[in-house]
Simulated scan of single mutants.
Amino acid sequence: MASSASTLEIEARDVVKIVLQFCKENSLQQTFQTLQNECQVSLNTVDSIDTFIADINAGRWDAVLPQVAQLKLPRKKLEDLYEQIVLEMAELRELDTARAILRQTQVMGVMKQEQPERYLRLEHLLVRTYFDPNEAYQESTKEKRRAQISQAIASEVSVVPPSRLMALIGQALKWQQHQGLLPPGTQFDLFRGTAAMKQDEEETYPITLSHQIKFGKKTHPECARFSPDGQYLVSCSVDGIIEVWDYISGKLKKDLQYQADESFMMHDDAVLCVDFSRDSEMLASGSQDGKIKVVKTFSSGKREGGDFVAASVSPKGEWLYCVGEDMNMYCFSYQSGKLEHLMKVHDKDVIGVTHHPHRNLVATYAEDCTMKIWKP
């Protein structure tokens, strides 16, 4: 059931930005600031650039300052903005506000240290009993300075559609549903990354027939497995066909596109064993002719004595382990499809193989009255 696709490269900075947007939209201010500072990544988005520019051009500083506080802007542009606000507060004779901005903000504190003359000029303007626009705005006008500042700051910000994190998760779930990996109405556990499973169901023995799946007169299942996430029931038949069933209805899962198109997974000979990867995304099957398939075909390469009797997939799906009638274990790399290692594991017929759920340990068992645990 695994499908091959071209790799998409996602920048870590973009992931951080999406999380920052989530924090911003949910008023997680402390988390927002901490994440932005630790990662040295800035969100630098506004709801609307046009509205943001209009607010600056109109001098609506009560709307501008809260947005600027969440942006990472070049120091020079911030200094120009705060200087303009101090000048306009002085013109309105809002002197207490002007002094608070001048003396209590980090931007103006840096200006005081590094540009003392520029800073002192603003201090002097605040102690005068009059306001001279020509002197304050230095042969320009209030409107022209606002326009210059708005354009300079607007080049540093962008607009992103709201709730990008939730939208992307929604798109991913829709894709999985479209691919048949997430049946309609299925609850999804985002934390585990799987369909939600009932954890509180009390275990008890069966007494009632729920469904009966009939096969053709000349075929029958040689093996069957439920997937670890509980979504699939897979059967492997003596005629080499592998089918995925809806165990709730007892019918073939037609929401898997390849089954709807009747392009079934197949071997040339009877399928004797099957196993899922732990995430239920990959299915390995072994046939009587000594071949293993996972979207790819793995073969022992032997004409006689190389038939596989059992197989197991590693937890991350990187390795496929098969045991054959020749008492050997075949170790295939899923990525390359090559047989990377071959070794004899028992002295009599091997019965099966299984992999530890999260450690590099493989157990094999055979008719020689032993079970052996193998490690790197």
Score class of each variant (00 low, 15 high):
Glu281Ile: 00
Lys251Trp: 02
Glu281Cys: 04
Ala284Glu: 00
Pro183Arg: 05
Gly193Leu: 07
Thr297Cys: 12
Ile292Val: 11
Phe188Leu: 06
Gln259Ser: 05
Leu272Cys: 15
Phe215Ile: 05
Cys236Arg: 03
Thr297Arg: 11
Asp261Gly: 02
Ala195Pro: 13
Ser210Gln: 13
Leu181Glu: 01
Gln288Asn: 10
Gln199Met: 08
Glu243Cys: 06
Leu233Arg: 11
Glu222Cys: 15
His267Met: 05
Ser285Cys: 10
Leu272Trp: 14
Leu256Trp: 05
Lys302Thr: 04
Arg192Asn: 09
Thr204Asp: 08
Asp307Phe: 06
Gly290Ala: 07
Asp189Met: 09
Val309Glu: 05
Val294Gly: 00
Val238Thr: 14
Glu202Gln: 10
Ile242Met: 05
Lys217Pro: 02
Asp279Lys: 01
Gly230Val: 05
Val309Pro: 01
Ile241His: 01
Lys302Met: 11
Asp268Ala: 08
Glu201Leu: 11
Glu243Phe: 04
Glu202Arg: 12
Gly240His: 06
Met265Arg: 10
Asp200Arg: 13
Gln259Met: 10
Thr186Glu: 10
Gly290Arg: 01
Ala196Lys: 12
Tyr205Phe: 13
Asp229Leu: 00
Ser237Glu: 09
Val294Glu: 00
Glu262Asp: 10
His267Leu: 04
Tyr205Trp: 14
Glu281Lys: 10
Tyr258Ala: 07
Glu222Lys: 15
Ser210Thr: 14
Leu233Met: 14
Leu233Ser: 06
Lys302Asn: 05
Gln257Met: 08
Ile241Thr: 08
Leu272Ser: 08
Ile248Lys: 15
Val295Pro: 04
Ile242Tyr: 03
Asp268Cys: 02
Tyr258Lys: 09
Glu222Tyr: 15
Arg225Val: 15
Phe308Leu: 14
Tyr205Arg: 15
Lys218Glu: 12
Tyr232His: 09
Arg303Ile: 07
Lys302Gly: 07
Gln212Thr: 15
Gln187Asn: 12
Leu182Arg: 12
Thr194Ile: 15
Arg192His: 10
Arg278His: 07
Asp289Cys: 10
Ser300Lys: 06
Leu209Gln: 13
Leu283Ile: 02
Pro221Ser: 14
Val244Pro: 00
Asp255Asn: 14
Met266Thr: 13
Gly230Cys: 05
Asp200Gln: 12
Gly306Val: 12
Leu190Asn: 06
Thr219Asn: 15
Gln259Arg: 09
Val234Phe: 10
Thr208Asp: 11
Phe226Lys: 06
Ala195Asp: 02
Lys253Gly: 02
Glu243His: 03
Gly216Lys: 13
Tyr205Gln: 14
Gly286Phe: 02
Arg192Ile: 00
Gly180Met: 04
Trp245Gln: 10
Glu243Pro: 00
Phe308Glu: 01
Phe188Lys: 02
Phe226Asn: 08
Lys296Thr: 14
Gln259Val: 07
Phe191Arg: 13
His220Val: 11
Ala260His: 11
Asp275Tyr: 01
Gly216Cys: 06
Gly230Glu: 06
Lys293Gly: 00
Ser285Val: 03
Asp200Gly: 06
Asp255Leu: 05
Ala195Met: 12
Glu201Lys: 15
Met197Lys: 15
Thr186Asn: 06
Tyr205Lys: 06
Lys302Arg: 14
Leu182Thr: 05
Asp261Arg: 09
Ser235Trp: 07
Val238Asn: 09
Lys251Gln: 13
Lys291Val: 04
Ala224Pro: 02
Thr194Ala: 04
Lys291Asp: 02
Leu252Pro: 01
Met265His: 07
Thr208Trp: 09
Ser227Ile: 01
